[in-house]
Nucleic acid binder design. Structure first.
Lengths: 226, 226
DNA sequence: TGGTCACGGATTGTCAGACAATCGGACAAG
DNA sequence: CTTGTCCGATTGTCTGACAATCCGTGACCA
């Protein structure tokens, strides 16, 4: 029966639970900047607002907390996490380790993963050229960096990198009005990939190191945490 | 008012919630090998067994799932995760990146972190010499490896490493009767630290690479997953 | 024989409502 | 300025309920 597995490849069905959708809605609200950092997320209010029960809200809040987007204090509830300068620095240091490992492994990496890096870059630069919204630019930008980690071929490192990016998106959500020069960013990334294509792995690593240092400094500066 | 902050520094109070204790008990049961991998964790049965409500059990199960110790399939419930050969390999590859970063940073690391590595090693070797149980040996062994990651000074990388170790403990729980030669292991770790003390960072990195490859192969072999 | 269908028990996902424990603040008293 | 007490708000946990879903079993039919 050839073709059976590919026959209805375009069909979808939403298998998401109510908790998933609630968590996603909360994430969106956080990234969209609808709730400031530090805002307490009251269970009853959210339940009423989302039209679900308190149990469901509690579970969704647990997801947010596990992702690091919110913090829970016993008997005091969950509030949107407030990014500190130290955590931004730590995220970037950790990223350097993960992405650096990917960059160093460029030569031995799976060709498919290398192709994914190129594609992530073009998606990003295309979005910049198209003048897309700040949020989708961030999305493509961070996806590119994750694709570097994917060069290691390790799903767990990719998952760790995605967790870091989530935390970073939280910080970026607070500075979305402070538009950095995304065009420069895009060029910088193109240069990085060109170094990789030339197999100048060490140079690419050094480049990445500077890039992440810059990123940390910019975000911290924009947050006014100097 | 000098001394106020340090006055009652030794006092403690258990602030753990029922969910925390339930999750801890489940973890213990998993690591102790009381439940095999793949065993379904039924909510009502656990609630009755632990003497808590189903809501509490559900939340505790969510914690286990988030830690990777169990997997949840929609409408099919939570079961103890079954370690695959590929995941063991991936965990070790990821560990190599994290621990390798720590080892490479030995020279620039905080002296306190370096001391912590030495202390973790002696705790491990002491436990081996004292003929401690298999489980506490694993605990000390993995703690040593985490202390290597801590050389990076990044809490997030340490957290990621701890997540990996949790997954490994799950796999090790299944082979605890297959006693590996832990004495060799201890000597191997001592050799690693001696390389570090001599600031032979590259040699230490290569050593670590071999060590982790061995570890992966041993665990996979013991699991009979070839 | 082999495949489809319907049924019933078991389990999860979600809900509603309840109550004690805890927290934060206001306010009085020493 | 510290201590003690009260109160409203909120969380942590429990109980009970119900629809949706899954899985096995057996009937039914080509």
């Amino acid at each position: 029966m050839p073709g059976q597995t590919t026959a209805f490849a375009t069909l979808h069905l939403d298998h998401s639970s109510t908790v998933d959708r609630a968590a996603e809605e909360l994430r969106r609200a956080v990234f969209e900047g609808e709730v400031e950092s530090g805002t307490p997320l009251r269970e009853v209010a959210l339940a009423a607002s989302l039209g679900v029960s308190r149990s469901t809200v509690r579970e969704a809040l647990g997801v947010l907390v596990a992702e690091g987007l919110a913090t829970r204090e016993p008997h005091r509830g969950v509030s949107v996490a407030r990014p500190a300068a130290s955590s931004v620095r730590d995220v970037c240091r950790a990223r350097l380790v993960l992405e650096g490992a990917g960059v160093r492994g460029w030569r031995e990496a799976d060709p498919a993963d290398r192709r994914a890096v190129r594609e992530a870059l073009t998606r990003y630069t295309d979005a910049v050229a198209a003048g897309d919204s700040f949020r989708v630019l961030n999305e493509h930008h961070l996806a590119f960096h994750v694709s570097l980690v994917a060069l290691t071929g390790s799903p767990r490192l990719v998952a760790a990198a995605e967790a870091l990016m989530t935390e970073l998106k939280l910080a970026l959500a607070q500075v979305d009005r402070i538009r950095r020069n995304t065009h420069d960013q895009a060029e910088s990334h193109t240069a990085l990939v060109e170094l990789l294509e030339a197999e100048e792995v060490d140079a690419a690593g050094a480049f990445l190191c500077d890039h992440l240092d810059d990123a940390a400094a910019q975000v911290i500066g924009a947050l006014g945490l100097g």
